[in-house]
């Protein structure tokens, strides 16, 4: 069975062809490392799966069921959650508020619906515990370390028991120690049976957690193979074009 299947995905932005005929699938609990040079189309592919915009051609199946996303919430409803490249957090809000942003828990107070902060803090604390992250729900995100911010962004995805978590460069701008934390977080997602698509430029990170590696070059998929059967040298060659395909 395949959790996510994409067939013949093509995306044009006016005259620019960002993706051409990309077919790829991800199994449940599998971590797919998606690599490629700047502008290769990685973020575009992630955004298509996340429902930010529709593909120009091609179709997407989740658990072998065809899906059509018009807006991000459509994708969310099908169990697709995203950690964006820039994390998309509000620095001025607490960790718990960020985890629940757009999906706040409310309770009724007379005729009004008010935000249930205690319930949100408690649930956020549970999620941080699951992720084994030392993150306090009531702290402002502004004051947090890069690793804690990652935990907040990832905890967001866990709110709704997702099937697929997409991560666009989660290890781009953080310290070595925090990278280790994030990779651990990714393994925890995988252990829960969640499929992860990890976009990254960092070869060691991808080789550390990915079960399979896919390489995009100028919008085309040039490789998709088990990590164990590949090597950093081969992937580098595939990214640059020194190796045509594998």
């Amino acid at each position: 069975m395949s959790r996510l299947t994409m067939t013949g995905i093509t995306k044009n932005f006016g005259a620019i062809r960002a993706l051409s005929d990309v077919s790829i699938s991800v199994a449940p609990g599998e971590v797919l490392g998606l690599m490629g040079d700047n502008g290769a189309g990685k973020s575009t592919l992630v955004k298509i799966i996340a429902g930010n915009f529709p593909p120009s051609a091609g179709d997407i199946r989740i658990d072998d069921k065809p899906v059509f996303f018009h807006r991000p919430v459509d994708a969310q409803r099908e169990g697709v959650e995203v950690v964006y490249q820039d994390l998309a957090l509000c620095n001025n809000l607490t960790a718990a508020s960020n985890v629940f942003l757009g999906r706040e828990t409310t309770r009724s107070l007379g005729p009004f619906r008010v935000i249930d902060y205690p319930a949100m803090n408690q649930r956020a604390a549970e999620l941080f515990k699951q992720l084994k992250s030392e993150t306090r729900p009531r702290d402002l995100v502004r004051k947090m370390s890069g690793g804690q911010r990652q935990a907040v962004a990832i905890a967001r995805t866990l709110l709704s028991e997702p099937k697929i978590v997409l991560m666009d460069e989660p290890t781009a701008a953080i310290s070595v120690r925090q990278v280790v934390e994030v990779l651990d977080l990714i393994r925890r997602l995988r252990d829960r049976g969640i499929s992860v698509v990890l976009v990254s430029h960092r070869m060691p990170d991808v080789f550390a957690v990915a079960d399979r590696i896919a390489v995009l070059r100028r919008g085309s998929l040039v490789a998709s193979k088990a990590t164990a059967l590949s090597s950093p040298e081969e992937v580098t060659g595939l990214i640059t074009g020194a190796i045509e395909a594998a």
Binding site: Q76, A88, C90, N91, L101, R113, V114
Partner: peptide, 24 residues
């Protein structure tokens, strides 16, 4: 302090694109 409307005022002011991506 206590309503979604209020929370979203601060969310938009804090990071508008994050608010949009969150489905607000």
């Amino acid at each position: 302090r206590w309503t979604r409307w209020g929370q979203y005022v601060y969310a938009i002011g804090g990071n508008e694109s994050a608010a949009t991506l969150s489905g607000i």
